[in-house]
Nucleic acid binder design. Sequence first.
DNA 1: TGGCATACCAGACAAATGTCTGTTATGCTG
DNA 2: CAGCATAACAGACATTTGTCTGGTATGCCA
Lengths: 215, 215
Amino acid sequence: MPKTPPGQTRNRVFRFVRDCLLRGDSPSLREVQRHFGFRAVETVRAHLAALVEEGRLVKEPGRARGYRLPKRQTKRLSSPVPDWPTSRLQPVPLLGEVAAGGFEEAIENPEGNLPVEIPDSRDLSDYFALRVRGESMSGAGILPGDTVIVERRGTPVSGQIVVALLEEEATVKRLHLGQGGMELRPENPDFDTLRPPPGSCRILGRVVELRRQIR
Amino acid sequence: MPKTPPGQTRNRVFRFVRDCLLRGDSPSLREVQRHFGFRAVETVRAHLAALVEEGRLVKEPGRARGYRLPKRQTKRLSSPVPDWPTSRLQPVPLLGEVAAGGFEEAIENPEGNLPVEIPDSRDLSDYFALRVRGESMSGAGILPGDTVIVERRGTPVSGQIVVALLEEEATVKRLHLGQGGMELRPENPDFDTLRPPPGSCRILGRVVELRRQIR
DNA sequence: TGGCATACCAGACAAATGTCTGTTATGCTG
DNA sequence: CAGCATAACAGACATTTGTCTGGTATGCCA
Protein backbone atom coordinates (compact mmCIF):
# COMPACT_ATOMS: atom_id res chain seq x y z
CA MET A 1 0.00 0.00 0.00
CA PRO A 2 1.51 3.30 -1.08
CA LYS A 3 1.93 6.11 1.33
CA THR A 4 -0.91 8.60 1.17
CA PRO A 5 -1.10 12.31 2.08
CA PRO A 6 -1.41 12.99 5.80
CA GLY A 7 -4.85 12.45 7.19
CA GLN A 8 -6.39 11.10 4.02
CA THR A 9 -6.31 7.43 4.83
CA ARG A 10 -7.16 8.23 8.43
CA ASN A 11 -10.43 9.81 7.38
CA ARG A 12 -11.31 6.86 5.22
CA VAL A 13 -10.58 4.52 8.10
CA PHE A 14 -12.74 6.61 10.39
CA ARG A 15 -15.66 6.62 8.00
CA PHE A 16 -15.45 2.88 7.58
CA VAL A 17 -15.35 2.18 11.29
CA ARG A 18 -18.10 4.72 11.97
CA ASP A 19 -20.35 3.04 9.44
CA CYS A 20 -19.71 -0.31 11.02
CA LEU A 21 -20.52 1.04 14.46
CA LEU A 22 -23.70 2.67 13.24
CA ARG A 23 -24.78 -0.73 12.07
CA GLY A 24 -24.14 -1.95 15.59
CA ASP A 25 -21.14 -3.95 14.52
CA SER A 26 -17.75 -3.14 15.99
CA PRO A 27 -14.99 -4.27 13.62
CA SER A 28 -11.76 -5.95 14.61
CA LEU A 29 -8.45 -4.48 13.57
CA ARG A 30 -7.93 -7.24 11.06
CA GLU A 31 -11.32 -6.69 9.50
CA VAL A 32 -10.43 -3.07 8.91
CA GLN A 33 -7.07 -4.21 7.62
CA ARG A 34 -8.63 -6.56 5.10
CA HIS A 35 -11.10 -3.93 3.98
CA PHE A 36 -8.34 -1.51 3.09
CA GLY A 37 -5.78 -4.06 1.99
CA PHE A 38 -3.17 -3.02 4.51
CA ARG A 39 -0.40 -5.53 4.90
CA ALA A 40 0.10 -4.89 8.62
CA VAL A 41 -2.37 -4.85 11.48
CA GLU A 42 -0.28 -2.25 13.16
CA THR A 43 -1.20 0.23 10.48
CA VAL A 44 -4.84 0.00 11.50
CA ARG A 45 -3.97 0.08 15.16
CA ALA A 46 -1.97 3.26 14.68
CA HIS A 47 -4.83 4.88 12.80
CA LEU A 48 -7.42 3.92 15.40
CA ALA A 49 -5.17 4.98 18.24
CA ALA A 50 -4.75 8.34 16.54
CA LEU A 51 -8.51 8.62 16.08
CA VAL A 52 -9.00 7.93 19.77
CA GLU A 53 -6.36 10.52 20.51
CA GLU A 54 -8.27 13.02 18.38
CA GLY A 55 -11.45 12.17 20.26
CA ARG A 56 -13.22 10.91 17.17
CA LEU A 57 -13.41 7.40 18.57
CA VAL A 58 -13.51 5.87 22.00
CA LYS A 59 -11.98 2.60 23.05
CA GLU A 60 -12.98 0.26 25.83
CA PRO A 61 -9.64 -1.07 27.03
CA GLY A 62 -8.92 -4.76 27.38
CA ARG A 63 -11.79 -5.73 25.20
CA ALA A 64 -12.03 -7.31 21.79
CA ARG A 65 -13.87 -5.15 19.28
CA GLY A 66 -13.92 -2.42 21.86
CA TYR A 67 -14.08 0.66 19.68
CA ARG A 68 -17.12 2.86 20.10
CA LEU A 69 -18.45 6.15 18.90
CA PRO A 70 -17.98 8.86 21.49
CA LYS A 71 -21.03 10.34 23.11
CA ARG A 72 -21.69 13.82 21.94
CA GLN A 73 -20.43 16.80 23.93
CA THR A 74 -19.56 14.54 26.83
CA LYS A 75 -17.34 16.58 29.06
CA ARG A 76 -17.63 14.32 32.03
CA LEU A 77 -14.69 13.34 34.11
CA SER A 78 -13.42 9.82 34.25
CA SER A 79 -16.70 8.45 35.47
CA PRO A 80 -16.42 4.70 35.55
CA VAL A 81 -18.99 3.46 33.11
CA PRO A 82 -20.85 0.57 34.69
CA ASP A 83 -20.16 -2.77 33.09
CA TRP A 84 -23.81 -3.31 32.44
CA PRO A 85 -26.65 -0.92 31.91
CA THR A 86 -28.57 0.11 34.94
CA SER A 87 -31.79 -0.45 33.09
CA ARG A 88 -33.09 -3.33 31.09
CA LEU A 89 -35.44 -3.89 28.23
CA GLN A 90 -38.66 -5.65 29.11
CA PRO A 91 -41.85 -6.51 27.31
CA VAL A 92 -44.49 -4.39 28.99
CA PRO A 93 -48.11 -5.49 28.52
CA LEU A 94 -50.09 -3.18 26.30
CA LEU A 95 -53.65 -3.00 27.55
CA GLY A 96 -55.11 -1.00 24.71
CA GLU A 97 -57.93 1.31 25.51
CA VAL A 98 -59.24 0.60 28.94
CA ALA A 99 -62.81 1.71 28.62
CA ALA A 100 -65.45 -0.28 30.39
CA GLY A 101 -64.92 -3.69 31.84
CA GLY A 102 -62.45 -2.95 34.52
CA PHE A 103 -58.76 -2.64 34.83
CA GLU A 104 -57.96 -5.97 36.37
CA GLU A 105 -59.62 -7.76 33.54
CA ALA A 106 -57.70 -5.71 31.01
CA ILE A 107 -54.39 -6.56 32.56
CA GLU A 108 -55.15 -10.23 32.21
CA ASN A 109 -55.69 -9.86 28.48
CA PRO A 110 -53.11 -7.53 27.04
CA GLU A 111 -53.22 -6.61 23.38
CA GLY A 112 -49.56 -7.30 23.09
CA ASN A 113 -46.22 -6.32 24.48
CA LEU A 114 -44.08 -3.28 24.08
CA PRO A 115 -40.32 -3.29 24.53
CA VAL A 116 -39.67 -0.71 27.20
CA GLU A 117 -36.54 0.21 29.05
CA ILE A 118 -37.14 0.04 32.79
CA PRO A 119 -34.72 0.60 35.67
CA ASP A 120 -33.05 -2.39 37.22
CA SER A 121 -34.41 -1.34 40.57
CA ARG A 122 -37.99 -1.89 39.45
CA ASP A 123 -39.99 -4.90 38.61
CA LEU A 124 -41.58 -5.66 35.27
CA SER A 125 -44.96 -6.00 36.92
CA ASP A 126 -44.81 -2.35 37.94
CA TYR A 127 -45.39 -1.32 34.34
CA PHE A 128 -48.11 -1.43 31.76
CA ALA A 129 -48.95 0.49 28.63
CA LEU A 130 -52.19 2.08 27.60
CA ARG A 131 -53.57 3.68 24.48
CA VAL A 132 -54.83 7.20 24.95
CA ARG A 133 -58.40 8.17 24.13
CA GLY A 134 -59.68 11.68 23.75
CA GLU A 135 -58.18 15.10 23.40
CA SER A 136 -58.15 16.12 27.02
CA MET A 137 -54.34 16.14 27.31
CA SER A 138 -53.48 17.51 23.90
CA GLY A 139 -52.07 20.63 25.52
CA ALA A 140 -49.39 18.44 27.06
CA GLY A 141 -48.59 16.90 23.72
CA ILE A 142 -50.51 13.71 24.47
CA LEU A 143 -52.82 12.97 21.57
CA PRO A 144 -55.50 10.37 20.99
CA GLY A 145 -53.98 7.16 19.73
CA ASP A 146 -50.73 7.73 21.58
CA THR A 147 -49.43 5.01 23.83
CA VAL A 148 -48.46 5.88 27.38
CA ILE A 149 -46.24 3.72 29.53
CA VAL A 150 -47.35 3.74 33.13
CA GLU A 151 -45.41 3.04 36.27
CA ARG A 152 -47.54 1.77 39.12
CA ARG A 153 -46.12 3.94 41.80
CA GLY A 154 -46.97 3.88 45.45
CA THR A 155 -47.79 7.43 46.38
CA PRO A 156 -49.14 9.79 43.75
CA VAL A 157 -47.33 13.10 43.61
CA SER A 158 -49.05 16.36 42.82
CA GLY A 159 -48.19 17.73 39.40
CA GLN A 160 -47.52 14.40 37.78
CA ILE A 161 -49.37 13.09 34.78
CA VAL A 162 -51.21 10.02 35.98
CA VAL A 163 -53.62 7.37 34.83
CA ALA A 164 -56.71 7.33 36.99
CA LEU A 165 -59.39 4.70 37.11
CA LEU A 166 -62.62 6.62 37.29
CA GLU A 167 -66.07 5.23 36.80
CA GLU A 168 -64.84 2.04 35.21
CA GLU A 169 -62.72 3.98 32.78
CA ALA A 170 -59.04 4.83 32.70
CA THR A 171 -58.13 8.42 31.95
CA VAL A 172 -54.91 10.33 31.62
CA LYS A 173 -54.82 13.62 33.51
CA ARG A 174 -52.50 15.80 35.49
CA LEU A 175 -52.91 15.19 39.20
CA HIS A 176 -53.19 18.02 41.69
CA LEU A 177 -53.46 17.46 45.38
CA GLY A 178 -54.58 20.33 47.58
CA GLN A 179 -56.65 21.02 50.62
CA GLY A 180 -59.72 20.78 48.44
CA GLY A 181 -58.95 17.16 47.74
CA MET A 182 -57.85 15.49 44.58
CA GLU A 183 -58.09 17.22 41.23
CA LEU A 184 -57.60 15.66 37.84
CA ARG A 185 -56.81 18.47 35.48
CA PRO A 186 -56.99 18.12 31.72
CA GLU A 187 -54.52 20.02 29.61
CA ASN A 188 -57.04 21.34 27.14
CA PRO A 189 -59.31 24.34 27.73
CA ASP A 190 -62.26 22.49 26.21
CA PHE A 191 -62.32 20.05 29.10
CA ASP A 192 -63.17 20.54 32.75
CA THR A 193 -61.20 19.65 35.82
CA LEU A 194 -62.49 16.55 37.55
CA ARG A 195 -62.91 16.48 41.31
CA PRO A 196 -63.78 12.90 42.11
CA PRO A 197 -65.21 12.28 45.57
CA PRO A 198 -62.82 10.35 47.81
CA GLY A 199 -62.97 6.63 47.24
CA SER A 200 -64.44 6.86 43.77
CA CYS A 201 -61.10 7.16 42.07
CA ARG A 202 -58.00 5.06 41.98
CA ILE A 203 -54.66 6.29 40.69
CA LEU A 204 -53.18 3.47 38.67
CA GLY A 205 -49.79 5.04 38.23
CA ARG A 206 -47.85 7.81 36.65
CA VAL A 207 -47.03 8.24 32.98
CA VAL A 208 -43.32 7.80 32.45
CA GLU A 209 -43.11 7.58 28.70
CA LEU A 210 -45.10 8.44 25.61
CA ARG A 211 -44.93 6.80 22.22
CA ARG A 212 -46.62 7.71 19.01
CA GLN A 213 -46.58 5.84 15.75
CA ILE A 214 -46.93 8.23 12.85
CA ARG A 215 -48.67 6.69 9.83
CA MET B 1 -25.13 -22.72 40.53
CA PRO B 2 -28.06 -25.01 41.22
CA LYS B 3 -29.85 -26.71 38.45
CA THR B 4 -32.97 -24.86 37.34
CA PRO B 5 -36.15 -26.06 35.63
CA PRO B 6 -35.81 -26.65 31.89
CA GLY B 7 -35.85 -23.53 29.81
CA GLN B 8 -35.92 -21.13 32.72
CA THR B 9 -32.29 -20.10 32.75
CA ARG B 10 -32.24 -20.24 28.98
CA ASN B 11 -34.90 -17.58 28.77
CA ARG B 12 -33.06 -15.38 31.22
CA VAL B 13 -29.89 -15.74 29.21
CA PHE B 14 -31.77 -14.89 26.05
CA ARG B 15 -33.30 -11.77 27.52
CA PHE B 16 -29.93 -10.60 28.78
CA VAL B 17 -28.18 -11.12 25.47
CA ARG B 18 -31.06 -9.58 23.58
CA ASP B 19 -30.93 -6.47 25.74
CA CYS B 20 -27.20 -6.19 25.14
CA LEU B 21 -27.64 -6.55 21.40
CA LEU B 22 -30.37 -3.96 21.31
CA ARG B 23 -27.91 -1.59 22.87
CA GLY B 24 -25.52 -2.38 20.09
CA ASP B 25 -23.19 -4.30 22.36
CA SER B 26 -22.60 -7.95 21.65
CA PRO B 27 -21.46 -9.70 24.83
CA SER B 28 -18.72 -12.30 25.06
CA LEU B 29 -19.44 -15.68 26.58
CA ARG B 30 -17.49 -14.77 29.69
CA GLU B 31 -19.39 -11.55 30.16
CA VAL B 32 -22.63 -13.47 30.16
CA GLN B 33 -21.01 -16.00 32.48
CA ARG B 34 -20.03 -13.32 34.97
CA HIS B 35 -23.45 -11.72 34.84
CA PHE B 36 -25.17 -14.93 35.84
CA GLY B 37 -22.43 -16.26 38.08
CA PHE B 38 -21.95 -19.48 36.15
CA ARG B 39 -18.78 -21.28 37.03
CA ALA B 40 -18.16 -22.62 33.54
CA VAL B 41 -18.04 -20.84 30.21
CA GLU B 42 -19.38 -23.92 28.59
CA THR B 43 -22.69 -23.43 30.33
CA VAL B 44 -23.16 -20.17 28.50
CA ARG B 45 -21.95 -21.64 25.25
CA ALA B 46 -24.46 -24.46 25.52
CA HIS B 47 -27.28 -22.02 26.22
CA LEU B 48 -26.39 -19.76 23.32
CA ALA B 49 -25.91 -22.69 20.98
CA ALA B 50 -29.38 -23.89 21.96
CA LEU B 51 -30.82 -20.43 21.39
CA VAL B 52 -29.26 -20.39 17.94
CA GLU B 53 -30.71 -23.83 17.36
CA GLU B 54 -34.13 -22.53 18.35
CA GLY B 55 -33.72 -19.63 15.95
CA ARG B 56 -33.92 -17.03 18.69
CA LEU B 57 -30.34 -15.92 18.06
CA VAL B 58 -27.99 -15.96 15.13
CA LYS B 59 -24.26 -16.48 15.25
CA GLU B 60 -21.59 -15.31 12.90
CA PRO B 61 -19.15 -18.21 12.97
CA GLY B 62 -15.47 -17.78 13.65
CA ARG B 63 -15.95 -14.41 15.15
CA ALA B 64 -15.55 -12.97 18.61
CA ARG B 65 -18.75 -11.48 20.00
CA GLY B 66 -20.53 -12.83 16.98
CA TYR B 67 -24.04 -13.29 18.30
CA ARG B 68 -26.78 -11.27 16.63
CA LEU B 69 -30.52 -10.91 16.65
CA PRO B 70 -32.09 -12.80 13.78
CA LYS B 71 -33.24 -10.63 10.92
CA ARG B 72 -36.50 -12.43 10.66
CA GLN B 73 -37.88 -13.97 13.74
CA THR B 74 -39.50 -17.12 12.49
CA LYS B 75 -42.61 -18.30 14.20
CA ARG B 76 -41.91 -21.56 15.94
CA LEU B 77 -44.91 -23.77 16.26
CA SER B 78 -43.57 -25.67 19.21
CA SER B 79 -42.69 -22.52 21.07
CA PRO B 80 -44.99 -21.24 23.78
CA VAL B 81 -43.55 -17.76 23.32
CA PRO B 82 -46.27 -15.31 22.27
CA ASP B 83 -46.56 -14.43 18.63
CA TRP B 84 -43.41 -13.13 17.03
CA PRO B 85 -43.67 -9.71 15.49
CA THR B 86 -43.59 -9.33 11.75
CA SER B 87 -41.17 -6.56 12.43
CA ARG B 88 -37.96 -6.74 14.37
CA LEU B 89 -36.31 -4.78 17.13
CA GLN B 90 -33.08 -3.11 16.13
CA PRO B 91 -30.69 -0.67 17.77
CA VAL B 92 -31.21 2.64 15.98
CA PRO B 93 -28.51 5.29 16.45
CA LEU B 94 -29.65 8.25 18.50
CA LEU B 95 -28.03 11.40 17.19
CA GLY B 96 -29.13 13.75 19.92
CA GLU B 97 -29.85 17.33 19.11
CA VAL B 98 -28.65 18.30 15.68
CA ALA B 99 -28.23 21.99 16.17
CA ALA B 100 -25.26 23.68 14.64
CA GLY B 101 -22.39 21.71 13.27
CA GLY B 102 -24.14 19.79 10.59
CA PHE B 103 -25.81 16.50 10.15
CA GLU B 104 -22.81 14.59 8.95
CA GLU B 105 -20.97 15.44 12.08
CA ALA B 106 -23.92 14.38 14.17
CA ILE B 107 -24.23 11.03 12.51
CA GLU B 108 -20.63 10.38 13.35
CA ASN B 109 -21.31 10.92 17.02
CA PRO B 110 -24.48 9.21 18.11
CA GLU B 111 -25.41 9.47 21.75
CA GLY B 112 -26.33 5.84 21.84
CA ASN B 113 -28.80 3.38 20.49
CA LEU B 114 -32.53 3.12 20.83
CA PRO B 115 -34.39 -0.16 20.50
CA VAL B 116 -36.89 0.47 17.73
CA GLU B 117 -39.24 -1.85 15.98
CA ILE B 118 -38.72 -1.64 12.23
CA PRO B 119 -40.40 -3.60 9.44
CA ASP B 120 -38.72 -6.69 8.11
CA SER B 121 -38.70 -5.18 4.68
CA ARG B 122 -36.44 -2.32 5.66
CA ASP B 123 -32.82 -2.04 6.59
CA LEU B 124 -31.47 -0.84 9.90
CA SER B 125 -29.38 1.82 8.19
CA ASP B 126 -32.57 3.48 6.97
CA TYR B 127 -33.29 4.71 10.47
CA PHE B 128 -31.93 7.15 12.97
CA ALA B 129 -33.30 9.00 15.96
CA LEU B 130 -33.09 12.67 16.81
CA ARG B 131 -33.91 14.83 19.78
CA VAL B 132 -36.27 17.68 19.03
CA ARG B 133 -35.33 21.27 19.70
CA GLY B 134 -37.73 24.17 19.80
CA GLU B 135 -41.46 24.63 19.98
CA SER B 136 -42.24 24.90 16.29
CA MET B 137 -44.15 21.61 16.12
CA SER B 138 -45.88 21.73 19.49
CA GLY B 139 -49.22 21.98 17.75
CA ALA B 140 -48.66 18.49 16.42
CA GLY B 141 -47.83 17.21 19.86
CA ILE B 142 -44.07 17.23 19.23
CA LEU B 143 -42.38 19.01 22.10
CA PRO B 144 -38.80 20.06 22.76
CA GLY B 145 -36.85 17.20 24.24
CA ASP B 146 -38.91 14.58 22.46
CA THR B 147 -37.13 11.96 20.42
CA VAL B 148 -38.25 11.34 16.87
CA ILE B 149 -37.40 8.23 14.91
CA VAL B 150 -36.72 9.01 11.29
CA GLU B 151 -36.94 6.79 8.26
CA ARG B 152 -34.52 7.90 5.62
CA ARG B 153 -35.60 6.24 2.43
CA GLY B 154 -38.57 6.97 0.26
CA THR B 155 -39.57 10.03 -1.67
CA PRO B 156 -40.84 12.88 0.46
CA VAL B 157 -44.60 13.10 0.35
CA SER B 158 -46.53 16.30 0.83
CA GLY B 159 -48.21 16.43 4.20
CA GLN B 160 -45.72 14.24 6.01
CA ILE B 161 -43.77 15.34 9.03
CA VAL B 162 -40.14 15.35 7.95
CA VAL B 163 -36.68 16.18 9.18
CA ALA B 164 -35.04 18.73 6.91
CA LEU B 165 -31.42 19.77 6.85
CA LEU B 166 -31.50 23.51 6.44
CA GLU B 167 -28.59 25.87 6.86
CA GLU B 168 -26.52 23.34 8.77
CA GLU B 169 -29.38 22.62 11.11
CA ALA B 170 -31.88 19.81 11.27
CA THR B 171 -35.47 20.83 11.84
CA VAL B 172 -38.73 18.97 12.16
CA LYS B 173 -41.54 20.41 10.09
CA ARG B 174 -44.51 19.38 8.04
CA LEU B 175 -43.64 19.20 4.37
CA HIS B 176 -45.85 20.73 1.72
CA LEU B 177 -45.10 20.45 -1.95
CA GLY B 178 -46.96 22.70 -4.35
CA GLN B 179 -46.40 24.65 -7.51
CA GLY B 180 -44.77 27.35 -5.44
CA GLY B 181 -42.03 24.93 -4.49
CA MET B 182 -41.24 23.33 -1.18
CA GLU B 183 -42.72 24.59 2.05
CA LEU B 184 -41.75 23.58 5.55
CA ARG B 185 -44.65 24.45 7.78
CA PRO B 186 -44.39 24.63 11.53
CA GLU B 187 -47.34 23.57 13.62
CA ASN B 188 -47.28 26.57 15.92
CA PRO B 189 -48.71 30.00 15.08
CA ASP B 190 -45.68 31.70 16.61
CA PHE B 191 -43.44 30.35 13.84
CA ASP B 192 -43.34 31.14 10.15
CA THR B 193 -43.46 28.81 7.21
CA LEU B 194 -40.07 28.27 5.61
CA ARG B 195 -39.69 28.37 1.86
CA PRO B 196 -36.12 27.29 1.23
CA PRO B 197 -34.77 28.04 -2.23
CA PRO B 198 -34.22 24.88 -4.28
CA GLY B 199 -30.95 23.20 -3.48
CA SER B 200 -30.55 24.80 -0.08
CA CYS B 201 -32.53 22.14 1.71
CA ARG B 202 -32.24 18.42 2.05
CA ILE B 203 -35.02 16.20 3.37
CA LEU B 204 -33.37 13.66 5.62
CA GLY B 205 -36.43 11.50 6.08
CA ARG B 206 -39.86 11.28 7.53
CA VAL B 207 -40.79 11.00 11.17
CA VAL B 208 -42.30 7.60 11.84
CA GLU B 209 -42.35 7.53 15.61
CA LEU B 210 -42.20 9.84 18.57
CA ARG B 211 -40.98 9.07 22.07
CA ARG B 212 -41.03 11.18 25.16
CA GLN B 213 -39.56 10.40 28.54
CA ILE B 214 -41.54 12.06 31.29
CA ARG B 215 -39.41 12.98 34.32
C1' DT C 1 22.54 18.01 5.67
C1' DG C 2 20.34 16.21 9.70
C1' DG C 3 16.55 15.77 12.48
C1' DC C 4 11.57 14.99 12.84
C1' DA C 5 7.02 13.59 11.84
C1' DT C 6 3.94 10.59 9.28
C1' DA C 7 2.50 6.43 6.64
C1' DC C 8 3.19 1.93 6.28
C1' DC C 9 5.29 -2.81 6.91
C1' DA C 10 6.90 -7.26 9.45
C1' DG C 11 6.55 -10.50 12.76
C1' DA C 12 6.39 -11.92 17.48
C1' DC C 13 3.69 -11.90 21.50
C1' DA C 14 -0.19 -11.66 24.88
C1' DA C 15 -4.76 -11.21 26.08
C1' DA C 16 -9.51 -12.03 25.02
C1' DT C 17 -12.65 -15.18 23.37
C1' DG C 18 -14.70 -19.39 21.47
C1' DT C 19 -14.53 -24.62 21.29
C1' DC C 20 -13.93 -29.13 22.75
C1' DT C 21 -14.03 -33.29 25.73
C1' DG C 22 -15.35 -35.40 29.74
C1' DT C 23 -17.88 -35.47 34.28
C1' DT C 24 -21.67 -35.01 37.81
C1' DA C 25 -26.18 -34.32 38.97
C1' DT C 26 -31.35 -34.36 38.31
C1' DG C 27 -35.71 -35.23 36.48
C1' DC C 28 -38.60 -37.68 33.21
C1' DT C 29 -40.34 -41.86 30.97
C1' DG C 30 -40.99 -46.43 29.31
C1' DC D 1 -35.00 -49.84 37.22
C1' DA D 2 -32.41 -48.41 32.87
C1' DG D 3 -32.23 -45.09 29.36
C1' DC D 4 -32.31 -40.54 28.00
C1' DA D 5 -32.35 -35.67 27.99
C1' DT D 6 -31.11 -31.36 30.27
C1' DA D 7 -28.43 -28.30 33.49
C1' DA D 8 -24.30 -27.29 35.10
C1' DC D 9 -19.23 -27.90 36.01
C1' DA D 10 -14.01 -28.35 35.06
C1' DG D 11 -10.22 -27.58 32.49
C1' DA D 12 -7.54 -27.89 28.40
C1' DC D 13 -7.14 -26.07 23.87
C1' DA D 14 -7.56 -23.29 19.48
C1' DT D 15 -8.71 -19.19 17.30
C1' DT D 16 -9.42 -14.45 17.16
C1' DT D 17 -7.93 -10.18 18.35
C1' DG D 18 -5.14 -6.51 20.33
C1' DT D 19 -0.30 -4.99 21.53
C1' DC D 20 4.43 -4.39 21.16
C1' DT D 21 9.01 -3.55 19.16
C1' DG D 22 11.50 -2.50 15.42
C1' DG D 23 12.17 -1.38 10.45
C1' DT D 24 11.66 1.26 5.61
C1' DA D 25 10.35 5.10 3.05
C1' DT D 26 8.86 9.88 2.21
C1' DG D 27 8.22 14.63 2.88
C1' DC D 28 9.05 18.89 5.61
C1' DC D 29 11.90 22.28 7.65
C1' DA D 30 15.52 24.62 10.24
